[in-house]
Design a protein around this nucleic acid. Structure first.
Length: 641
DNA sequence: CTAGGGTTAG
């Protein structure tokens, strides 16, 4: 779409007046420079509404805007995304004769781009700037293309710049590099990296930071880290790029380690740092660490930052303190769809589906439009609480009322919902009716439901599909094998084992974490590298003996153990190690927090139940399903804090 | 013209 600047000056001025509140002027200069100074100050402080207000006053008092006025007024329009006011300003620019000024032209191009009016931006560019071959104008249009996800146009313009010999500087790269930041764009990213090295622009700190972010967004964590290590004078933004990158890739322990390293280097964290750290803390379920970070946030005066509030809501919800999560949510002056999604998800994961659904309705009443992620959180809340009717209604409303195409992630929630409710055939029918291709999660949800309801026949169908899509996901093999063993189908158990062996899939050692005095300790199955290993195994031995003395209750466990000894590589369960470690280091009456992948390993609770019978300890289990990343790379029994 | 940020399952 192209917006034409209004040709009628009276109308255009009136439009601007409508958009801004009246303020009484303290002085009434008719020369423009005092106005320009004020306008620039406000725009630089991000007070854009006020800046536009000053512009309006300026016109009212007969001062003429000039080349030092327009860039800041246009910047304010861009920031507030006011395309109509912007095009009025364009008209004023033309009337004032400022249009050949490069600073004004770039501001115009950028304003149109940020208002998503790329064609208008291109028109300004074509009509005025081509003969000048000015880098700034090309950069403005190029970053605008990237902003509007028109990567091909951006790269074509980049090629043209090289052909015409337009100067390519750091800002060009900063505009273009984010276009390579997505899963699958890795090779394009390395090409851009090469371009930067060849032109010597990689020594620019902001370009280097941008490249680090790009690699992390591509999922190329190793490349990102390597580049990070090579940056000699790391700034706060460098650290943040790396920390956020780890957080986005689910590498929570890396985040915490790097955060500590950053502090030892004497770099002071800011709000962005805390956002990344908090999201990792909530994934690890390390409540006390989260509280420590929260105190720092309060001490640094970042309490009002909406990004941080959302991260805190999530952290408290995941760490089991729903009340506090709710309190933070209630205090937020502006609740975005992300805030609502976080609190809804919080109630959902605590099984409070009714509240989650109420909140979802409240969100809609408050005028916030749910997005596809919000639907995932409400649907999963319904499935955990067994609210199948409610869930189905939301699922239907999604497309009908909000025009959102349900993706595989929504279907997997629905399959889970129907499946848990025992409606296995309905779940299967739903999968068959899907217009998008079901992914592993969808079939996996069906497989999980089959495990709960002991439906071997359907499980075999789901297994075949899921293994086709995710052949190396060991969890599904384990799930089917466990189902066979519950159904006493020993032939099935060995068949799955043979499959795993043939595909050379070794079950990754399970892992568990224990939070102790604000530190998170990680244990792998069969791990012997912990400094208290001897004591831990001794304690486990004693426990086993006690169970046997208590009589019979441990028969299953013993059978399992002998079975485990036969299959090579199986070792002491990680949660047992974690529990023993917790017992060793806490006094009676205290709560032990165990973080465990609950989906694949179900017998964690049995062991704890038996332990609680004989010792005075309470266990709190938190789910760590998502954190399989820990097993790669960073894992030994390290003390992360 | 210009580097870093929050939400989602199984």
């Amino acid at each position: 779409m192209t917006v034409k600047p209004s040709q009628n000056p009276r109308i255009s001025t009136r439009l601007l007046q409508l958009k801004t509140p009246k303020t009484e002027p303290t002085t009434t200069p008719t020369t423009s420079s005092p106005w320009n100074t004020r306008l620039r100050e406000l725009a630089n402080q991000s007070l854009f509404t006020e800046a536009l207000s000053v512009y309006r006053e300026m016109l009212r008092f007969g001062a003429s805007p000039n080349a030092f006025t327009f860039p800041f007024a246009l910047k304010s329009c861009a920031a507030l995304s006011l395309p109509f006011v912007g095009s009025q300003l364009h008209c004023h620019v033309i009337r004032s004769g400022c249009d050949p000024e490069p600073f004004v032209l770039t501001s115009l191009i950028s304003m149109y781009c940020k208002c998503a009016l790329i064609d208008s931006a291109r028109k300004v560019f074509d009509e005025n700037t081509q003969s000048m071959k000015l880098s700034v104008c090309y950069n403005a249009l190029l970053s605008g293309y990237v902003l509007n996800v028109r990567y091909c146009d951006a790269f074509m313009l980049f090629r043209k710049m090289r052909e015409l010999g337009v100067e390519i500087n750091a800002v060009t790269m900063l505009g273009l590099i984010p276009a390579c930041a997505g899963p699958g764009y890795f090779w394009l990213g390395t090409f851009m990296h090469c371009c930067c090295v060849k032109s010597g622009l990689d020594v620019d700190l902001s370009v280097a930071n941008c490249l680090v972010t790009m690699y992390m967004k591509c999922g190329s964590v190793d490349y990102g880290r390597r580049l990070f290590n090579e940056i000699p004078d790391k700034g706060l933004i460098t650290w943040n790029a790396m920390i956020s990158g780890y957080a986005q890739n689910g590498l929570a322990t890396h985040v915490l380690a790097l955060y500590r390293e950053m502090k030892t280097c004497g770099v002071l964290p800011d709000a962005v740092t805390f956002v990344g750290v908090l999201s990792s803390v909530s994934h690890l379920g390390a409540r006390s660490v989260g509280c420590e970070v929260e105190q720092q946030i309060a001490a640094n005066g970042f309490g009002r930052n909406p990004f941080l509030s959302n991260a805190l809501i999530n952290m408290y919800a995941r760490c089991g303190n729903l009340k506090k999560a709710r309190a933070i949510f209630d205090c937020m002056p502006v609740k975005s769809v992300v805030s609502w999604t976080a609190i809804i998800g919080g109630y959902g994961m605590h099984g409070r589906g009714e509240v989650a659904a109420q909140l979802f309705d409240e969100m809609i009443r408050s005028g916030v439009r749910p997005d596809s992620t919000a639907f995932v959180s409400v649907l999963s809340a319904c499935s955990h609480a067994g609210l199948s009717d409610k869930g189905s209604n939301y699922f239907a409303a999604m497309e009908k009322q909000y025009g959102l195409q349900p993706g595989p992630e929504h279907y997997s929630c629905m399959v889970d919902l129907l499946g848990r409710a025992g409606q296995l055939n309905e779940a299967w029918e739903l999968i068959k009716s899907m217009r998008v291709k079901p992914d592993g999660a969808v079939w996996g949800a069906l497989l999980g439901a089959c495990k709960i309801h002991k439906n071997v026949e359907l499980a075999e169908i789901a297994f075949e599909k899921v293994i086709d899509l995710e052949p190396t996901n060991i969890g599904y093999y384990v799930l089917l094998s466990n189902l066979y063993s519950v159904a006493k189908n020993l032939e099935g158990v060995s068949r799955v084992r043979v499959m795993m062996r043939e595909r050379n899939l070794k079950k990754d050692p399970g892992c568990s974490y224990v939070e102790l005095k604000g530190r998170v300790h990680l244990f792998l199955a069969g791990d012997r590298s912990h400094y208290q290993t001897v004591e831990i195994y001794k304690m486990l031995d004693e426990l086993e003996n006690l169970f046997e003395e208590l009589g019979g209750s441990n028969r299953i466990d013993r059978e399992k153990r002998s079975e485990e000894k036969h299959s090579a590589g199986m070792a002491m369960h990680s949660e047992k190690l974690a529990i023993a470690f917790g017992l060793l280091n806490t006094s009676p009456g205290t709560e032990i927090v165990v973080i465990k992948n609950l989906r694949i390993c179900g017998d964690c609770h049995l062991f704890m139940k038996m332990v609680s019978k004989i010792v005075d300890r309470q266990f709190v289990v938190r789910d760590a399903t998502r954190f399989h990343h820990f097993k790669n790379g960073f894992c030994s029994c390290k003390d992360y804090w």
